[in-house]
């Protein structure tokens, strides 16, 4: 069944760096996906709620301010609690290598750091969405 992949691009916490998130959002749109962008300063609860109501295939989180270890796991936990752990959750931004294992243990499927071509993100999503497209 051919349908567009639905992605929620979200900015959790107080971080205002949105250049990367917007670039990603546009690239995904241009790759034929339906993109819902939340804007800045979203709580984990708001993000999980939006992901569920919009029934997205992918949640794409962007943080450059260093709060990822606190905020990312909260979001995956909320999704799991509501039975929505079939959603692919990926993240990006300034995320030190040493934090990655922890984030992956906590349900973040992949992390993309500065210099990532958007084509790599698109490819990754296409190959890893959990639900039939």
């Amino acid at each position: 069944m051919d349908r567009p992949i639905r992605v929620l691009v979200a900015k959790p916490g107080l971080d205002g760096h949105d250049r990367g998130a917007k670039v990603i959002a546009r690239a995904l749109r241009d790759a034929g996906m339906e993109v819902i962008y939340t804007g800045l300063r979203q709580t984990p609860e708001q993000i999980a709620e939006a992901a569920i109501q919009e029934d997205v295939d992918v949640v794409a989180l962007s943080i450059l301010s260093g709060a990822h270890n606190t905020l990312f796991p909260k979001i995956t936990k909320l999704l799991k609690e509501r039975g929505a752990d079939d959603i692919l959750v990926i993240g990006g931004g300034i995320i030190p290598e040493e934090d990655m294992p922890f984030l992956k243990e906590n349900g973040i499927a992949e992390i993309f750091t500065p210099g990532t071509p958007t084509s790599a993100v698109i490819e990754y999503i296409k190959q890893h969405v959990n639900r039939a497209v």
């Binding site: 916490g13 107080l14 709580t43 301010s65 260093g66 709060a67 905020l71």
Partner: peptide
């Protein structure tokens, strides 16, 4: 809202 952000940047 400050959770995880205090003193970070």
């Amino acid at each position: 809202m400050a959770e995880g952000e205090v003193g970070k940047v």
